[in-house]
């Protein structure tokens, strides 16, 4: 787990006295994945901070008022970028997989767990 100094090194991360706060579950998931990859040495913390900074700057330049509510959208975009740059995955793989989840969600009746079709996954995505 990064310490407080690590977290404070990141641009304006939403925090309270006890640590980071999230608005929605997916934000916590994106946060947790980043920590996991960092802990495995896939990237350093300053490197991550740079990617995040870049995304936030880009968003500000294109008119994002940066009120904090879009913070994890930038976080997610930065995480996708760093994963692609580090060859952890590719932009195509991410797009295809997102599409597959969308299909899976749309074809799942309400109340059933959403699962990727195993056959589709093996056929289309496994290397």
């Amino acid at each position: 787990m990064p310490n407080r100094t690590d977290l404070e090194a990141l641009p304006d991360i939403p925090m309270d006295d006890d640590g980071p706060v999230f608005r929605e579950p997916w934000e916590a998931q994106a946060f947790a994945m980043t920590l996991e990859l960092h802990q495995q040495g896939r990237f350093s913390w300053p490197e991550w901070a740079r990617y995040l900074h870049q995304e936030i700057d880009k968003a500000k330049q294109s008119g994002d008022p940066d009120l904090g509510d879009t913070y994890y959208q930038h976080w997610l975009a930065a995480l996708e970028n760093i994963c692609v740059d580090k060859k952890i995955t590719s932009g195509e793989a991410l797009a295809e997989r997102k599409e597959a989840w969308d299909r899976a969600a749309r074809s799942t009746p309400h109340g059933e767990p959403i699962e990727l079709d195993r056959a589709i996954r093996r056929g289309e995505f496994d290397k």
């Binding site: 994945m33 997610l76 996708e80 995955t89 793989a93 991410l94 997989r97 989840w101 969600a105 009746p109």
Partner: peptide, 20 residues
Amino acid sequence: HEHAHLPDTVLRVKALESLL
């Protein structure tokens, strides 16, 4: 339609997570 329709960010997180 009572079918799940997940927001873009949720789909992207699920995509990345399942690949990782």
